[in-house]
Design a binder for these strands. Structure first.
Lengths: 174, 174
DNA sequence: TCCGTTACGTCAGCCTTATTGACATATCTC
DNA sequence: GAGATATGTCAATAAGGCTGACGTAACGGA
């Protein structure tokens, strides 16, 4: 496709042509993600929050009743890292913790009204970008992109992600 | 599609249905990116590098002769942040700086052989994930995903990115 | 030739987000 | 009652980003 690296043939690539053909995905994923997360960042600073808070708030709002362990598995960070941002979200009244009913060791996480509003405001910003993208490339490309992105996820995690994305909702009581 | 938030109707969303329909893109982009960057991370620690080094090395390798200003525009970080990682890459012999010919104020960045090898090893890891994804969802979905991801980029930046991704290669001499 | 602008480097201090390791507590399960 | 599990927390550290300020070299036009 492009003439990149024509003067510098790859020394160790098993298949230069195929390696090369992946640059577009690698780079467009980088640029799309770069701009994708930049929108909410502006709002978040007004609340004294960062991206880490956004991620927590998003998944708590998306799946009310989420446990700490499940959140750790989604975010792939340590509990110490999670605890700091979660504590701030709770202290500022965006997330509420309730003791589990079946298992009282668990702390189920719920968004407050305030938390839900913020989560939706952030999603709306990202949604606007997504809708503008769909206007450009069409709904079919969005559907295909979803399939491609899904296939990019670790195989062991796809079932879990599928359930979360397409089967989410209130799960645990109170 | 899903029953998420059924018990908690969005308070401020202009269009709940459309906001909701974006959750899949928001989340799959998060999970795909999470796993996508996790592969190179393992190699990078062996060299004492992090993701920031990877990004710099990738674009320097992709576009030999890149200037500092262009790299800053790609990465969207401050020159102080860039300088730290770039200095380490130069000190460890992965990137070479040469004074510009037309404009002697510029420092043109080139990968060394060592740098090119590392960049390609990292790209290869990501390429393997991409190829596995294509095996699952097909080449058409990949092409569509590229169009969608491209449309997700800031409008002002699309020309620049298009040139970089599809028209890259050696640009500035010696 | 002088002067303003540009490209880059650097010092200093700070913030966020992540890490590892260790230990405490409450609760479940057997 | 004992061990495993879910969570909370203290402490130290690292990576990667930021702002602000200042310096130097080179370009470019008046």
């Amino acid at each position: 496709m492009s003439g990149a690296l024509a003067e510098a043939p790859p020394a160790a690539a098993t298949d230069p042509a195929e390696t090369q053909s992946c640059f577009d995905v690698i780079e467009l994923l980088f640029f799309a993600y770069r701009d994708f997360v930049s929108d909410p960042d502006r709002i978040l600073t007004d609340y004294g929050f960062g991206r880490a808070h956004h991620r927590v708030l998003h998944f708590v709002n998306r799946q009310p009743g989420l446990t700490i362990a499940e959140l750790l598995d989604i975010l792939r960070i340590t509990k110490q890292s999670l605890n700091r941002v979660l504590k701030e979200l709770v202290e500022k009244g965006f997330v509420e913790q309730r003791t589990g009913v079946q298992d009282r060791r668990q702390r189920l996480l719920f968004p407050t009204v305030k938390g839900r509003d913020l989560a939706l405001a952030l999603s709306r910003m990202q949604g606007e970008r997504i809708r503008r993208a769909i206007d450009r490339c069409g709904e079919d490309d969005r559907q295909a992109a979803l399939r491609f992105l899904f296939a990019m996820i670790d195989e062991n995690d796809r079932d879990h992600v599928a359930r979360l994305v397409y089967g989410a909702g209130e799960r645990k009581g109170q």
